[in-house]
Design a protein around this nucleic acid. Structure first.
Lengths: 313, 313
DNA sequence: TTGTATGCGTTATCAT
DNA sequence: ATGATAACGCATACAA
């Protein structure tokens, strides 16, 4: 049945015939009990409601299906204890591998060795990882604003301790430092910390924009599309027109970004490629990256209508 | 171990001690092979990228976790053949039940009897079902517009053959008929058919709005929030201010609806309650509904800023 | 109340 | 090349 080489074509045909006839279906439980594979991949993410993660899960499910695998999803709600619990459950389910987007709390992941785990998006030193190249992606976006002539560029950062948030901040600083003369272009007052959701983005945008006109940024780079949309909302509430008086660039490239008014300029993450690579690695179709040498996939900028040259002061 | 009544406390304690000591974990594969439960629930949805479904899955996962169950998600991409394949996979995985959002193609679901399946959102006659009360929900939204004084109310319908789309249309007609005098308030030219996504909503909105001012609707009810957002985009592109010259009401109540500019008025579906009820029924914690008597849960209206009284012609 | 034997559906191993 | 058999880890039924 499993295409063993030393079996007659004739017998194989006979067996297949009977399989059809009886409507036989292999039982994965029995398979996974006897053998060592369950054809099951676990995926643990902080929040399925976040469009970035839901697209990630969907892409992973497709990639897994292509190899005859199924996905079991679990939500950690960004809570380390829940995350540990979920990983434990997946372990006892004998999944063949785990795709993990770790929660932001500082913590370590404990898992029985032998179970391959691949950390996605929020890289952790010491674990195999795949992610978009956030640092260069953000740099790309900020450079776009610099090229348009902006100099007071605000930055909505992600949660302070999260690795991707740090990477994105690094990219912002890279870009700002590279063109700054004597003055400090990237002053702390231009940086606001926020969670990645809409509402936090709105609050951060409000913080950056509720100032005298010549002090407030002429452009804002947000660390997520949701933040960017929240920020647009804040600008609107303050009566600041986009892009006339404020340029906004987001990060992620979720489908919604092209449906806002005006359409959001954003840095697009290669979500499908990330998911496909993660699955391929867990299934040994692709070599493991080095432990401290994660796979980074390039982002690209997607121009919308929220960016233009700054107004003269 | 399974808290059998006739076992000494002393023995129970001893066993628990050893369980701790050895770090024993029950093996679900073995359990499900021997017994008849796998503590696994399958869920098949058309598109995880749709915020409505991702929230549904997340809620189901939570509800299942509360009972010690896990969820296997699968995407059908609104394709009947894929849907059948997914159900087959779940069957062979011996899931204890399936939550299904069927695809829109006209089709029948085939599955081995004995496997409880509960159809959610897009009800099908002949299957156990749970859904929001779309018809009355839409009626609520349209009545809201009528009360504001609107009479030329456009309606963006869902795909013609889908059951919820028909229900929502019914609700629209209910409301319109109830106040209409002699004239036909709900003329066919006020109804546009579209898929539920952003882009289809934009096209439908464009169709309804690209007319002479005194012919175009003063308000539009969209069958999904994504359609509503697309429709707002179309209005904006045509230079029609919202809500001054056009009121818009959506349906679903996804988190994003409160982050648009202006905030979307929408009819909210009780997603969490739907998911919780579906899980409870599959786990026999709640009685099955009648076969042709689905459980309908009430919607409620959430007022945003996209609705106001119509301008005089 | 406690201990023990059987079989669930596979696959790997061994004998034919 | 094919057929037979044990073992995987658990729940159940039955014996002690």
């Amino acid at each position: 049945m499993n295409d063993h080489p030393s079996v007659t074509d004739e017998l194989r045909a006979r067996v297949r015939g009977i399989i059809e006839e009886l409507g036989y279906l292999p039982d994965p439980s029995a398979r996974s009990m006897r053998g060592k594979v369950s054809r099951l991949i676990g995926i643990v993410i902080p929040d399925l409601t976040n469009p970035f993660f839901s697209e990630l899960v969907q892409s992973a499910e497709q990639a897994a299906a292509n190899h005859g695998y199924n996905i079991i999803v679990m939500t950690s709600f960004d809570h380390a204890a829940k995350e540990a619990d979920r990983i434990g459950q997946l372990t006892s389910r004998k999944v063949d591998g785990i795709i993990l987007v770790p929660c932001n709390d500082f913590h370590t992941i404990k898992l029985p060795k032998g179970l391959p785990i691949i950390v996605v998006d929020r890289l952790m030193p010491g674990y195999f990882g795949i992610a978009a190249d956030h640092r260069n992606g953000v740099r790309l976006g900020v450079e776009h604003l610099l090229k348009l002539g902006h100099r007071r560029i605000g930055f909505i950062s992600g949660p302070k301790h999260s690795v991707p948030a740090k990477d994105r901040l690094r990219g912002y600083l890279d870009a700002m430092e590279q063109i700054q003369g004597d003055g400090q272009l990237a002053s702390p007052s231009l940086i606001a910390e926020a969670a990645f959701d809409y509402e936090s983005g709105r609050l951060a945008g409000n913080y950056l924009l509720a100032r005298a006109r010549h002090e407030r940024p002429t452009a804002i780079f947000a660390s997520s599309d949701q933040q960017a949309i929240g920020c647009m909302r804040a600008a609107h509430d303050l009566g600041i027109p986009i892009p006339a008086a404020l340029s906004v660039v987001g990060f992620d490239g979720i489908p919604l970004s092209s449906m806002t008014t005006p359409r959001l300029t954003t840095v697009k993450q290669p979500i499908q490629r990330i998911a496909a690579a993660a699955v391929a690695i867990l299934l040994n179709k692709q070599p493991l990256p080095g432990l401290d040498d994660p796979i980074l996939l390039a982002c690209e900028i997607s121009e919308g209508e929220t960016t233009s040259a700054p107004q003269p002061d």
